[in-house]
Write a protein that binds this DNA or RNA. Structure first.
Lengths: 222, 222
DNA sequence: CGTAAACTTTAGGGGTGTTAACTTGGCATG
DNA sequence: CATGCCAAGTTAACACCCCTAAAGTTTACG
């Protein structure tokens, strides 16, 4: 009944050696299949082959474990999005290209939510207010930073007016975030693929049009 | 230890007389303070002053009770939104007025989410896929229908192009929905009121601009 | 007056978070 | 080398939850 060496750097017998990470990983796995509600101390401990109370040596509470899972989930999300974004071709008109990159970022966001709803939900839903969060919000800023770069590009190219740049992340982010949630566990969840994609295209098109406040933006109709 | 007459039409002694509704109401109360996770058979029964097993006479499961709570929550939301919408003045240019109504709808949505996060979450999050849902999605269509009317108005006034009308609900809905969730339990939750309102204004402005595809729309800059 | 519905108690099997007290064993120190 | 400390694990237990089942009590109604 000694701990099973599930994955990395684990000593062989009584002391696990890397229990914290192993538990966090297990928690992330649970989140992937069952969403944040499936992240449980007992479940993670069981998966690692360890007593539930052992987990309390490394995590002060279930919320703490969930936070660790969320961090891993967030990493997974930015990696997946970056990977998806890397596939967009780098040719054509600069403005079109910048817009295409923005669109791909949004599509990557929504696609990830659809492909890994459990992880996506874990990233964003069920945040505790008073939880001990060392860097508040900054860990969830992965997609935010990415979006910021896109918008900077659009300003530089004259598509988005400079005076509209401050705080411009809110709109596009809200749009893709909301759409993702409406699709994965909102009223749009039983749309077929066609309707779903139509909703995505329409939302992204509206967003891009709504950002066209600069000189070059008002020219392009899209 | 006889049941306390919490509210409406309850007979006095052994038979409660309106237990189903009382439980649903209690469940909605629990949802209001603690979100959907706080909706529990035992909790609702306790609040009403009744044995947990008695609840199973009226609800087949906790999910069933939650569904009832969600229905009440949804009603509360449409009422609150309608009330808020009723306050917008009915004067000025028709297009401006229609846009103002659209904006107010969005503001009402977000405001409700902020004022009653528990109820809002109960409306939209944690939907079970296989749950016995008599009219799938249609109960959650309250805000959706309202939005549809606004968009029809905008088409009639030439602000939104008719060819963009089909499925145009997705974008605006996604935007306000996403913003609401980012604010109440997403990364934007610890924004101050000022930043929060700025994000709301910016998102709504972007949305309105993004809908301006008709002849009258392209003229107005807003 | 008797049936049946509404509600009650009791009991039990499974899940969860969390605390308290105990045991094991690695490692440093005398 | 022996010793003993202390962290990493353990078992046990309490409280809460969902859900099911069986058997009893009250009340409405035909």
């Amino acid at each position: 009944m000694y701990p099973v060496n599930t994955s990395t750097a684990a000593r062989s017998s009584y002391h696990h050696g890397d229990l914290r990470n192993a538990l966090a990983r297990a928690a992330a796995d649970l989140a992937a299949t069952g969403g944040p509600d499936a992240v449980t101390i007992r479940g993670a401990a069981r998966e690692v082959g360890v007593t539930p109370t052992a987990a309390y040596r490394h995590f002060s509470s279930q919320a703490d474990l969930l936070a660790a899972a969320r961090e891993l989930a967030m990493n997974g999300m930015v990696v997946a999005m970056a990977e998806y974004l890397g596939q967009v071709p780098d040719d054509g008109d600069p403005v079109d290209r910048a817009i295409e990159r923005l669109l791909s970022t949004g599509r990557g966001y929504i696609r990830f939510a659809q492909d890994e709803p459990g992880i996506f939900r874990t990233c964003f839903t069920g945040q505790l207010r008073g939880a001990a969060d060392p860097d508040p919000g900054l860990d969830a800023m992965g997609p935010y930073a990415l979006l910021g770069q896109m918008l900077d590009e659009l300003v530089a190219l004259g598509y988005l007016a400079a005076e509209h740049r401050p705080g411009a992340e809110a709109g596009p982010w809200a749009a893709v975030h909301g759409l993702a949630l409406l699709i994965i566990d909102g009223p749009l969840r039983d749309f077929g693929p066609a309707e779903r994609n139509a909703a995505i295209d329409q939302t992204l098109a509206m967003t891009v049009r709504g950002l066209a406040t600069g000189p070059r933006g008002r020219a392009a109709s899209h």
